[in-house]
């Protein structure tokens, strides 16, 4: 038997035909994303003009990049942001896998309504739920009030203005991105595999690690990627839950692009972020290939 991780993915389209299928999306992205991106690349090399916010593109310089790379502040912020985004992706997947599995296998007629409820954090934009979360996580909010009432803590946990609080906020905001792909994938795997494993005496731990996890793998991969990228580029939740005390890379890019209007520097920040991600992707990809 093929392992579930390798199921599907057989070829049934000729390479030419498959390229034709991919072409419309690829051409659209190349034009509408690629052209602005080239401009952004050029802008990141432009030099500032004294007393003006219109940069000089005829005189390329690497000053913006050396400002980012030559200074621990920006690289530290990038590292923190990457770590927080990873934590967010891990947290979302940890909650989404059992939830999606339960929805797929056990929710019955409640499934559709509960799936809709899972989507709600995305339905009202980032801002309103985030402000709601602030009321829950604050020193006088419901979370600290409950923990204090139960006698679990003596003084309020500092959730607002901390990295922990931001990660909680991001997990809350992006959970739907993780649940939906996993649910879609689990729907396409027959429950009999799990039933057979239970019949054969698999312990719950073995069942989850050896059967369900591999079955859900493509969904975890898709959900993890969507959550990670969304967390990386988010700035509403980090700004509001972080109370401006925790800088993230996207917040710095936002500040430079919109408030300082230093577009060469903002563009260089964006390019740095994309380069860091591309590097991470290449490393992960090569490591995955090294595995026997």
């Amino acid at each position: 038997m093929r392992s579930p991780r390798e199921a599907g993915g057989g070829t049934s389209l000729s390479p030419t035909l498959s390229l034709l299928f991919i072409a419309p999306a690829a051409i659209l992205v190349l034009a509408a994303f690629g052209l602005p991106f080239l401009l952004l690349l050029a802008l990141s090399l432009a030099s500032p003009v004294e007393g003006s916010l219109v940069p000089d593109m005829s005189n390329p310089t690497l000053a913006a990049y050396s400002r980012i790379l030559g200074d621990g502040f920006y690289l530290r912020t990038l590292a923190t942001t990457l770590a927080m985004s990873l934590a967010t992706a891990a947290g979302c997947l940890a909650l989404a896998l059992p939830l999606a599995h339960w929805l797929a296998r056990r929710a019955g007629r409640a499934r559709r309504v509960l799936t809709a409820i899972v989507l709600l954090p995305l339905a009202c934009g980032a801002l309103l739920p985030t402000l709601g979360l602030v009321h829950l996580l604050g020193p006088l909010g419901v979370v600290n009030g409950t923990l204090r009432g139960l006698g679990l803590i003596a003084s309020p946990l500092p959730l607002l203005g901390t990295q922990l609080g931001i990660v909680i906020g991001l997990i809350q905001a992006f959970l739907p991105f993780a649940v939906l792909p996993i649910l879609a994938v689990l729907d396409r795997t027959p429950p009999v595999i799990e039933e057979a494993a239970i019949t054969l005496g698999a312990t719950p731990a073995r069942l989850w690690v050896r059967i369900i996890l591999p079955l859900a793998w493509p969904g975890l991969l898709a959900g993890g990627l969507l959550v990670f990228c969304s967390a990386l580029t988010a700035f509403v939740t980090p700004q509001i839950v972080g109370q401006g005390k925790v800088a993230t890379f996207a917040m710095l890019a936002y500040q430079q692009a919109l408030q300082v209007l230093d577009w060469p520097f903002a563009s260089a920040l964006a390019v740095t972020m994309l380069a860091a991600l591309a590097l991470a992707a290449v490393v992960t990809f090569s490591l995955a290939r090294l595995r026997p």
């Binding site: 602005p36 990386l232 700035f235 890019a253 920040l269 991600l277």
Partner: peptide
Amino acid sequence: LALPLVVW
């Protein structure tokens, strides 16, 4: 997905 949207 990988760029800060505001800059793009």
